[in-house]
Simulated assay, not measured.
Amino acid sequence: MQDIIDQFNQGDKEAAISAAVHYINEHPHAVDAYRMLAAMLINMKAYDQADELIVKALGLFHDDPELRYNWGLSAFQQGSFKDALARLLPLTDKSITGSLRADAAYMVALAYQELGDNIRAIAFALTAHDLNPDAIDAAVLTANLLLGQGVNDQVKDLLAPLLKTKDARVLLAYGMAVSAMGEDGSQYLNAAQTADPESYKRARELVHFLTEQEHHDEQ
């Protein structure tokens, strides 16, 4: 199946999907093939086809975690955040092994954030970060949510080990936390803006929105 994945990643996506369908027809009990095709369809935003395939596959491979993750991802990308939570929350259980639990916790955090429940979003973002401390996306999400709550010292401690990545989002969140604590964070803020001006702008807007939302909730 790797040749099909390579074909898809190289841009020949329609042909790769056709090849994946043919592979499933030839190997109807190969769960990896269903996972592969579901991921491809979601990537192509063919959500109806992806959901139909996943529901069928879950009937064959009861509660397969990776299929369920793709099902939740499909719901999230369609804006059905409550459905995404229903599908993804079981994957955050300690019985789920490997990186899948961290990935699910990250998506659950994003879903709660979209629903305006920042407290639960922080809890699951922290879980995702604890499970995979080197994952920048989870660390930055956690940091931005904490910044919105004014919890600056925890952001500083959380991001310090990731400064070596020179990722603009890390530098920005760290710089904002340091500045909010009365220290000079200009070197980090300037480095973030230089490294990725667009990400810098979006991240500042996001933190401003989260802060305003928190102040509104307190009123």
Rank of each mutant, 00 (worst) to 15 (best):
N152G: 00
L158C: 03
N152C: 11
G116Y: 15
S95E: 05
A75Q: 07
E114F: 10
L89Q: 14
S74L: 05
A86E: 07
A143M: 14
T165V: 03
A139W: 03
L126N: 06
A160Q: 13
F124H: 15
S74V: 04
G148S: 09
V155W: 03
S80H: 10
L88M: 06
L141H: 03
V155E: 02
Q113P: 00
I122H: 02
L100H: 11
R87V: 04
K166Q: 13
F124Y: 15
T165I: 04
L131F: 09
I119Y: 12
M107G: 00
K156G: 00
D103G: 07
L147D: 00
R101Q: 10
L126Q: 14
D83K: 12
G79L: 05
Q154M: 11
H129M: 10
L131E: 07
P161E: 13
L91N: 07
H129T: 13
V151I: 15
G98P: 10
L163P: 02
A111Y: 03
K166A: 08
I122M: 11
A123M: 05
I119K: 12
L162V: 10
F81H: 11
L85T: 04
N132A: 13
L145G: 02
F76L: 05
V140P: 04
I136S: 07
I136Y: 10
S95Y: 01
A123R: 12
P161D: 12
V140F: 05
D103W: 12
L163K: 04
V151L: 13
L159N: 00
V155D: 02
